[in-house]
Design a protein around this nucleic acid. Structure first.
Lengths: 216, 216
DNA sequence: GTCTATAGCCGGATAGAC
DNA sequence: GTCTATCCGGCTATAGAC
């Protein structure tokens, strides 16, 4: 793992009850951190969301920071493991459509994860300093590589790949991070699956055409 | 004004000292709220950033919420007054280029404003409920109108205008809100003006081409 | 393993001296 | 108009009963 903050969870036997309670607490913490950020979140609120006594949280997690790190680690692991990269062997149009669709599905299914991460970065990412180290740059370069190759092969226009990646990230995450604003703009109470699919269509169309992909 | 929360500042004479101190405090508060969010921010930190004793803050602003509302109001006023809409009379390519350029300049010049607003929305916007009312939907519809007209005139492809607006918002704000992640990805300490200009170019190119604008 | 009680600190807010 | 001193509530964290 790129980001190796030691976790006390590895030290103790993972009993059935322990595992279950830790999962409940992490889910509750994720919601609380998404709403109030690291500093604004309280162990009290987390306990209430988890429907457990407050000191129970302290029994399973050393302190607030530790719990927060666990939540962030969970989120990053989820994305790293479940989100497929752009498929460099496929045609650009197909690969981009698949990638955008998948990112939008993540925005729809894990809105809290995206929000916790976003708030941490907005705060200047003081608790992710280790994560955003030199390795991160290498990891990022591996993401841009596919665009460079497509450009060399004349399959897309030659535009700076880094900014393409930022565009893909920003436009897709926006639908989970700014959902409140978007639904207010659309006059809806909440966005549903169809809204996300419509957005996915528009994004695919604009990005694929915008990059100059030759479609059949 | 669309969003009419009464301010105590209107009630008192705006002396020279008062005006100056309030400006200092609001700037300090903006930075503090950007870093720690509403709940996480402390009056103590704001006082330190403003280099004033804590109770001075309470003298000028009734309480933390009031101060926060003032900061948010300032931000929204700034955007409403200084950000031009898309020019429907111009050619789509020119209008879009002008709009994207201006939004990116705002991201570069007022990164804190964008962050405070973003955090509020990520939190579910409980302190902007009044702002995101029915009027907001009308205001938003006036933004999408220009795309509808261009589509009717055959000047751009017929794609759902709302999602075009969201794409413009998300892709430009991303550079100020997620600056830490972006600079880490690019291996820089901080983004400079040239980075923003490069990003502007890429965004203009992809969006204009992606919407099927006929360029000369 | 679980919960109550509480220590100890820090937060927002105010009273009142200057 | 400015600042010191302070109240009180809520916060993290822990000690210790069960």
């Amino acid at each position: 793992m790129k980001w190796d903050i030691a976790s006390h969870r590895d030290d103790k036997p993972a009993g059935r009850i322990r595992q279950k309670n830790e999962d409940i607490i992490i889910a509750a913490a994720e919601a609380e951190f998404a709403h109030n950020g690291f500093k604004g979140a309280t162990m009290n609120n987390i306990a209430q969301r988890a429907d457990l006594p407050k000191s129970n949280i302290h029994y399973y997690f050393k302190n607030k920071l530790q719990l927060y790190i666990e939540v962030l680690t969970n989120i990053i692991d989820l994305w790293d493991n479940a989100l497929n990269d752009l498929d460099g062997d496929a045609e650009p149009g197909d690969a981009l459509r698949a990638y955008i669709t998948e990112k939008m599905r993540f925005s729809y299914e894990y809105p809290l994860a995206s929000k916790v991460f976003a708030k941490e970065i907005l705060s200047g990412a003081p608790r992710l300093a280790e994560y955003f180290n030199d390795d991160y740059q290498d990891w990022f370069n591996s993401k841009t590589h596919v665009f460079r190759r497509w450009a060399e092969q004349g399959k897309i226009d030659p535009v700076e790949p880094a900014h393409i990646v930022f565009l893909l990230w920003s436009s897709t995450q926006h639908y989970s991070d700014f959902e409140v604003q978007i639904s207010a703009a659309l006059g809806k109470k909440k966005l549903n699956k169809k809204d996300f699919e419509e957005a996915t269509d528009v994004l695919c169309k604009i990005v694929i055409r915008g990059l100059g992909v030759k479609e059949d």
